[in-house]
Design a protein around this nucleic acid. Structure first.
Lengths: 194, 194
DNA sequence: CGATTTCATTGATCCATGTTAAGAAATGCA
DNA sequence: TGCATTTCTTAACATGGATCAATGAAATCG
């Protein structure tokens, strides 16, 4: 079960086998069934979460009750409300499962202890933070300068498997448009390609 | 000249007078005249910048040549391409001055040395990072869920002085709309308030 | 100071996306 | 298996914001 985590970590830092088996004790594993919540808006985000199977998403809800997907996380991805996790403020996002999922959770204390024990993890978690940063960054630039169609194409190019795997209205929500609009955009693209 | 910096730092961490005068030596001061650049897309962002007088902005340019303002920084604000600064990748933003400005610059090495010398600065820079994080976060949520009018009102409520001080087309660019649209939105709001 | 550029406003028109509503297809569940 | 729910598509219409063009006002510069 920890194999996926090991591979994920090794993509970013070097660890001996021994160090890795040490590190696993800082994580707890959990199952989250479809539609179950890992975090609700207003709660405190205590964990950073690694997805070893399934798919989670984070999203916010506006006054009209519309959901806006912030991030998807399938196998080999990390997810959390990093802002709440870092600051200790209440979460502004919800995190729930779109599919029955297996996850590994590490809480703030464990994260700090792990960094004490194996300093390479300082770097690892900093890199996770940076990735998150980059993602936000890209998203802001994309929303400011690209049409929905372009953003869809870019998502499709970067994560084709995601687009195939998830319901279209979730993708639409991520892109910041309605399911109807996405449906139209797709139809249009088909027409163009013929 | 360092008074503004001192006040800014003291808002976040406690420093003795001695520590502060030590810390000033890590910064270099500079003047940036209106329309001059502090950073251009593609260069490496080597500095974090504190504005003690004037106003800077960061912005990206899309394929059509349109500018999209990412952030404004007037007196008492910090600005940089944090992503480039952190990762060492080339900058994706430009930073230039909207008014003749006085700034204090600290480069990456100095920042690290400063943290070694006065560990409280670890916390300080982490807080700057978090602020940036929060700003991005708010921006994403706002663009996903609020109309241009609402975003304008919210900017006006949070930073009224900014909106008064800057040319309207810069505000429009920050909001992700054209100057014409902003002009109409304002006209509309006036009508509503009468 | 006048000349030039930048900025803000307005109107006309266009287009992308939202809204509402309905039905079809797929999926889940009893 | 069959009914209920979820998902996707389509269409008609509404709307926010973009684009284009023109004008006047304000700021900047030589």
């Amino acid at each position: 079960m920890f194999k996926a985590l090991y591979d994920n970590i090794r993509k970013r830092i070097n660890l001996t086998e021994t160090e890795f088996s040490e590190c696993t004790s800082f994580f707890k594993s959990a199952k989250i069934r479809r539609k179950q919540f890992l975090l609700r808006e207003g709660e405190f985000c205590k964990h950073t979460c690694f997805v070893s199977k399934g798919c989670l998403r984070s999203y916010s809800t506006d006054e009209k009750g519309n959901e806006h997907v912030i991030q998807f996380a399938i196998e080999d991805w990390w997810i959390s409300d990093l802002y709440s996790f870092l600051t200790g403020e209440p979460a502004t996002y919800n995190i729930d499962a779109l599919e029955d999922s297996d996850v590994l959770l590490i809480d703030k204390n464990s994260q700090e202890n792990l960094c004490m024990e194996i300093p390479a993890f300082e770097r690892f978690f900093r890199l996770l933070l940076q990735n998150n940063y980059i993602a936000n960054h890209r998203r802001i630039t994309a929303t400011l300068s690209a049409t929905a169609e372009k953003r869809y194409l870019s998502l499709l190019a970067t994560y084709p498997h995601l687009v195939e795997r998830l319901p279209q209205h979730q993708i639409a929500s991520y892109l910041g448009i309605t399911p109807e609009s996405l449906s139209r955009i797709r139809k249009n693209l088909l027409r163009k390609n013929r």
